[in-house]
Amino acid sequence: MAHIEEKPFLFRLKREWPAYLYLLPMLVVLLLLTIYPISLTFYYSLTFNGPLPAPGIPPNTYVGLRNYNIIGTSDLPLTETLIMNSFFWATASIVIFIAVGLGLAAILNQPLRGKTVYRTLLLFPWAMPAFITILTWSNMLNFNFGIINAILGLFSIPPVQWTTGGFWAVWGGLLLMNTWLSFPYYMVVFLAAMQSIPKDLYESAEIDGASILYRFTHITVPYIGSTVGFVALMGWLFTFNNFYPIYLVTAGGPGNLTSIFVVRVFQEAFERSHYSLAATYTVIDFIIMLFVAIPAIKYTRLSEGWFK
């Protein structure tokens, strides 16, 4: 029998070399602009760089885990605050997004006059660049001159210190703004998922005498559950490190009340030149992200779309 195993391999290579060419840009980007800088960040977290309180140590010296010790001991309250704030920020945002998104999607998924008009108008906040609208919100939330406090005044509600007040005032303002920024996306995605549910499922349930609530919990939820889960996970991971809303409105303040990792890192690096410290916080943040993302992706089958 003719054995030509080598030949087809070469043939394959000859035929499929574009495959590797197609992957090349991505590999270059991954190597030079992702893997290398990430390694650099790990390395910086092990060096002394920038005006840390460390008299006598020249810049770029390898200092082992010194930076981790600093933030783990003297700086402990801040590290803890960053972790808690980031978790709170991401979790609270996602819960609201999903509630609002599902609610509006459910309303729009019924026969209703003018629903395409509503849908188009409701998509506007998503279509506007976030950088511009966040700056606008920042002004609208101003304590003295902001329009939000003026509107509250209409209902005889005293002005709220949105950027300088207590926990609920400041987080409340940020979450309100973040909801405005994000709910259209969730609404549209959930609506599309709901529209993909076969109508006859509802019809047969209706014939069987199932109530609206029962239909929602037994048909809608199981059908769009994986979409909601996947979008929630992605949204959580994104919000955990969403820089602009907090940086542009409160810059982590007042004090450290709304300080999250990504904002703190930027400030340490580019406002105080504490590069090593910034790198150390980055590594901690990255590790937290991996701890959440990898098991979620691996064990929940949420990522099937990535593999086919």
Binding site: M1, I4, E5, K7, P8, F11
Partner: peptide, 19 residues
Amino acid sequence: EVQSEGHVYIGDRVVDNVE
């Protein structure tokens, strides 16, 4: 698809390595 073993002829031509 490319065979693991054997030859394909179309007409008198071996087409194993022909796209």
